[in-house]
Design a binder for these strands. Structure first.
Lengths: 356, 356
DNA sequence: TTGAAAGCGCTAACAT
DNA sequence: ATGTTAGCGCTTTCAA
């Protein structure tokens, strides 16, 4: 089952390999009759262009490297899905590299992808500081866009969710539904999500609440820390707990239930990200849905707009507004105005549901 | 920033390109001193071999296509992770193709991957019947291994979890802890998971229970169907509900709680797969953990053992035994012998936990 | 519009 | 052990 080559198509259609190439790649005008003969011959022989040979000659593999910290992080699969679809729509394929949250592995994987001549790189940085070097070097060789997690200013183009807007949506909603003693459970890390969401909480709460921000508890982005934080926060008698991500919020819900605290009667709880498993939370979790499809589309778009390896022009940083999804965990205490779901005017695309 | 080629390394080290190639690729013995000079020159020039050129000449890209139905299906990310790591350990890269549960898109993606000259294909079939053609054709060109979901006998090598063993572990456990009125909530589809888990339930329940299998309700693999099925099953007064996957089980738990039925006091509930979100179920869900790492390792192993495109020899079908993870949802009603967790003698590798 | 010819960067025969 | 030489299959000058 040896593969059919361009040469054989040329012979069968009675013209040169150059002509066949032009017909099939559509690079230059070709006589109508010739084109027809070529296409027919290609069809009959079952010709399939060898993309490796094409890549070697044209210096473009039609391949993009996608580097991420951990595919098992529940927020990433939908992002990977959207990136894959957006790239495929342009005829490009995705080389996937999972680097296990380790910046050194990340650097090695990036290097490997460059050796494989990817046309571009999409990187969800493993570490805000320690990913920087590898990303910066890679950006000198191919167009590179940071997605979701960045690694410092000026390193490369960066597309992420607008955390400040997301947090503002949450606090506006809570205040509008009568909550006044709002505290915050977050993470102490240096990643953009941890830092920006905390900062946004403090700014918004300072502006909106008469007494300013409530108690803040910082740990890591884990279910366990969500549970623990509840015990530290409850003595201050909050009427709402804002969490920096969904995992924390689910941990908070679990512990609150264990303690017999009524949600949303006694306290409201909110998350961030809208990962698939919040469907299972009880009560259903109010959260901020990241505009996953738009993030992917924007990242893929930027990829195409910085010529390979050219470092001229300013770095672009694109922030996309997320959408507030109001569910039961933040329902008003007086159930006079039942709010089931709401999408603010963010212009963001909806994330597809998880299917089984 | 033009790339350094083999030719330049050859000139710098004062020997031929062939020698440089042999040193760097390690294909043939080379004099120690020459090798040293070559390596030094390569190092100094910052030489990086062009994998595309190498692939064209050696007819091997060091690339494997991974085709799956939907990366957002909660069972797949950990599988993708393990596959990626296993392949990377052999110096191979993963081209990812998500086909949106559509066999036609799947066929197109497979074809695209073949054009890109992947050395092999790993396919999680989208549909037990309609994936067959494309898979069979692809298997004629490159080594191909079906993973998790197959598509009929004799099509290609196939690696999957041993559903019969998994179901037997569940039923043995339930019977051993005193459950006798055990019913089943599953899916009506034709996929191997749906079919085999149902068959295994009926066989085991027939053998173990005096009155034989209990009520069986078949719908699809969704949370919603799990909730619905509870209402149909409750009138038969079961003391255990065995579910064909975790999503169903979580739906069952939700509805049971809504109805005020005590789990595990009144009825035990079990799932299948051990997807990350079962951590959040309340009570924690007893389930069957698929041997994800071992599945990936075995699939990657098989990939290397059928020479490219050669269809000789019988198709191999490898089934790996899963592991029962006992949690609160199936605790014995008399809490005299608290069982927290147990791993049966399956010889399977443990799946790593999901991290955030 | 078409063809002839020159490579892309590398590996693999075949020499020596 | 090393060098010379032919390509891998394609795209792209350069001529015609």
């Amino acid at each position: 089952m040896t593969d059919v080559t361009l040469r054989e198509v040329a012979r069968a259609s009675g013209c040169s390999v150059a002509t066949v190439s032009r017909v099939l790649a559509g690079t230059r005008p070709v006589g109508a009759e010739t084109a027809r003969r070529v296409r027919q011959a290609a069809e009959e022989l079952g010709y399939r262009p060898n993309q490796v040979a094409r890549a070697l000659r044209s210096r473009s593999t039609g391949t993009v490297g996608l580097v991420l910290p951990q595919i098992t992080n529940p927020f990433f699969p939908s992002l990977v899905r959207e990136v894959e679809h957006a790239l495929h729509a342009e005829g490009r394929a995705v080389l996937l590299a999972d680097c296990d949250d380790d910046p050194e592995i990340e650097a090695a994987r990036i290097s490997d992808l460059l050796d494989r001549q990817v046309d571009a790189l999409l990187v969800i940085a493993a570490d805000a500081k320690r990913s920087r070097d590898a990303v910066e070097k890679a950006a000198a060789h191919v167009p590179l866009v940071l997605l979701d997690r960045g690694c410092g200013p000026g390193v490369a183009d960066w597309v992420a969710t607008d955390n400040a807007t997301g947090m503002a949506l949450v606090l506006d909603h809570l205040v509008a539904t009568g909550r006044r003693r709002i505290c915050f459970v977050g993470a102490a890390g240096t990643g953009s999500a941890a830092v920006e969401r905390l900062a946004a909480y403090e700014a918004e709460a300072g502006a909106l609440l008469p007494r300013g921000p409530g108690q803040v508890e910082l740990g890591d982005f884990s279910l366990e820390w969500g549970r623990t934080a509840v015990d530290r926060i409850l003595p201050s008698r909050p009427d709402a707990v804002v969490c920096a991500n969904d995992l924390l919020a689910v941990g908070v819900l679990q512990r609150l239930r264990q303690l017999g605290v009524d949600v949303p009667g006694d306290v409201a709880v909110t998350g961030f990200d809208d990962i698939p498993m919040v469907d299972l939370a009880d009560p259903a979790l109010t959260t901020v849905r990241q505009p996953v499809r738009a993030l992917a589309a924007e990242a893929v778009h930027l990829l195409g707009h910085r010529p390979a390896g050219r470092n001229d022009g300013p770095r672009r940083s694109v922030r996309l507004a997320p959408e507030l999804v109001v569910r039961a965990s933040s329902a008003p205490r007086a159930p006079s105005a039942p709010r089931v779901s709401s999408a603010e005017d963010t212009g963001s695309t909806r994330t597809p549901e998880v299917e089984q």
